[in-house]
Amino acid sequence: MKELKILLIVIFFALLTYWGVEPFAHSKMHKHVEDNKFSYVDLPPLTKKGDATRGKALVMGAGACVGCHSIKAAGIPAPMDPNTAAASYGVNPPDLSNVGALMDERFLAELIKNPTKALILEHKFDGKTRVFPMPSFMGAGGDKEQEVADMVAYLKKISNKEVSPKEAYVTSCGRCHANRYGKYEQIGFVPKTKSNIKTNQDIDLLKFKEKVADYQGNLAEYMGKLPPDLSIMIRARSEDFMKTFIEDPQSQLKGTAMPRVGLTNEGYEKVMKYLEETGDPSKPARDALGIKVIGFFVIFTILALLWKKSVWRDLH
């Protein structure tokens, strides 16, 4: 009984210290931000029901989306390669194949009408001294709300398939953030190349690296600094931070050049899954092995207890 009392005192002080330096201290160190469950309530809801066929005509035609964006799902190639695009706009415009599946419709509609508002970049692009590279859609002559709804409907239709975590990452984060553990650079996955056996030089890889450096130069100029590599970001930031930061970067980092990306909750989870694959790949192995190791030591302890009892039988 006395030992139990001592044990409880030890546990009490250990837990008190743990609580103080971990949950409590972290709650005081980091600003608390409520998340909105990716609902984008600050943006107006769609009032019209969209028609994908009319939307397609607008996206390809009067909406002028394909002047800058590729839509690989519809067989539309990129008008320029990533390097040329970054030289012109600062960053490569995204392929639109998966945006309908990953991003919220309110966000997409607002992005078409008023990009800097949707992206929360009005502090950076005031429209006078700095103009955002993507122009606002002014309407194609009909009911503008209807036209926007049609385009959103089309984007949703073409992305009507399961988007992989990797694709989610490339579309949502990948044009600004490299992921070196995932062998990904802002212009694409690192190609498999071979070095010349006589010179031990891999010219194709060097060429790829040159392109990456060139792209990063334009990107850093455009963003103010080079956005961080996200390989193990999942371990460097709390889940709470990731969620609220991705939902609204300004909420955690006032004045940041990072735009809101408009992910739905599902899209966010896909991106996080990819970040877990690159940043914490041992999780499945850990979970599986842990229970076995702990089980082993439970048996070990039971045997130790029996042994101790047998040894101490003659001592008490």
Binding site: Y18, V21, E22, R235, A236, R237, S238, R286, D287, L289, G290, I291, V293, I294, F297, V298, F300, T301, A304, L305, W307, K308, V311, W312
Partner: peptide, 30 residues
């Protein structure tokens, strides 16, 4: 020693619980 090893058994359960399921406190995010 038999008593030590018994205490060690309890310690190992605690220790490996931390190693597998609660290691964040020992690996600062920063």
């Amino acid at each position: 020693l038999s008593k030590d090893i018994l205490v060690l058994g309890f310690f190992f359960i605690f220790f490996f619980y931390l190693v597998f399921y609660h290691f964040e406190f020992a690996m600062d995010p920063v």
